[in-house]
Design a binder for these strands. Structure first.
Lengths: 186, 186
DNA sequence: CGAGTTTAGGAATGAACGTTCTTGACTATT
DNA sequence: AATAGTCAAGAACGTTCATTCCTAAACTCG
């Protein structure tokens, strides 16, 4: 039930989904929704929480466990599981987070976890060059932490472009090309 | 007038903005809006077109003219002009493009121009190494085109994170770190 | 100075919104 | 078997939505 709601909320904006849409799509009936979640906003937050736990968190784990950056990017932007999992995150970050602080609070730790996973995948290469591998990083710039933040941004940006109409093949190719550029510099 | 509408539409979702909001924010009155734009959707498309022309296009030009990748990223994510210009693009891509084909059609060439600008900035480094500089690119991967697509995605992703609550300093640092990693590999 | 055309302002419209209330059926306890 | 309690189903509520219509003022041109 919450999964169906998450699916629906990932397709259109919060205000673009009506309670009638939810009732129809979920099969369950109006009273139960208000009994269980209190309001439309409550249902939305439950759906977002569910999606972050059951879709995004496993994805983050797989990114963290990826052997190298190319694999991490392939996992995060190429697989169908990523599409379902990240669409609601995308919408929540762009549309809801600026107007609903609780949504922003829910998103922040997940994005931080994403950064950490990206740093783990990217750090596997940094260990071999002169700079520090674990924490702190190298030269004058922000180091690994900054790159990890940027990588999370890239993943979200690529999914955004896929959502806005770019072909899946182009998106995969872009991820692969960036990984190639980033990993072959050591 | 269209500029004010673009500002307002960049803050909340399309369905989250009412005609009353627009009338109040724009100062101009209801009848004029319908006389001039026909409908809420017409006004939205005019506002999007205006923003793409007057905010995004100049930004793309400056990215294309940037001396190196670091400067390009700084221009695209760090400056206040980028914030105002890219927020509506972000919202349109995530929320409207999937449900309004005309919005998707309006966005596609702009994103392509962004890619081309990113390729110009990134290509200035590729010219110095073994691979091809101009068109076609190098090895087994997608080459410069793919990296350019990914860079546009990164820019949008960083702006998305700024919108979702990340601090501006972190965003700037992330862009700088990525540029450092990408440009110091030749 | 006055007729004709355009423009602003705001009330009115039906539909759709989120939320609540009423109704009818089912379950469990005595 | 009767009654109290729970739950689904949908009608009903007041509000707000996008859009239209009507009236009065302002401007144009002879």
């Amino acid at each position: 039930m919450v999964r169906s709601a998450a699916e629906l909320f990932s397709t259109r904006s919060y205000d673009g989904i009506s309670m009638d849409d939810l009732v129809t799509h979920l099969g369950v009936h109006r009273n139960s929704l208000y009994k269980t979640f209190g309001s439309k906003r409550g249902l939305y937050q439950a759906a977002l929480r569910w999606s972050l736990e059951h879709h995004v968190a496993p994805l983050v784990d797989r990114v963290a466990g990826a052997g190298d950056l190319a694999e991490a990017l392939r996992v995060a932007v190429g697989e169908p599981a990523a599409e379902a999992g990240l669409n609601l995150l995308l919408m929540a970050a762009v549309e809801r987070a600026p107007v609903d602080p609780e949504v922003a609070d829910q998103l922040a730790p997940v994005l931080a976890a994403f950064d950490q996973a990206a740093r783990a995948a990217a750090g596997r290469h940094a260990e071999h060059d002169g700079g520090g591998g674990g924490r702190g990083g190298g030269g004058e710039d922000g180091g690994e932490d900054g790159v990890a933040l940027a990588l999370t941004a890239t993943i979200l940006g690529l999914r955004l472009r896929a959502r806005a109409g770019a072909s899946g093949a182009n998106i995969d190719q872009a991820g692969a090309a960036l990984a190639h550029r980033l990993t072959h510099h050591v």
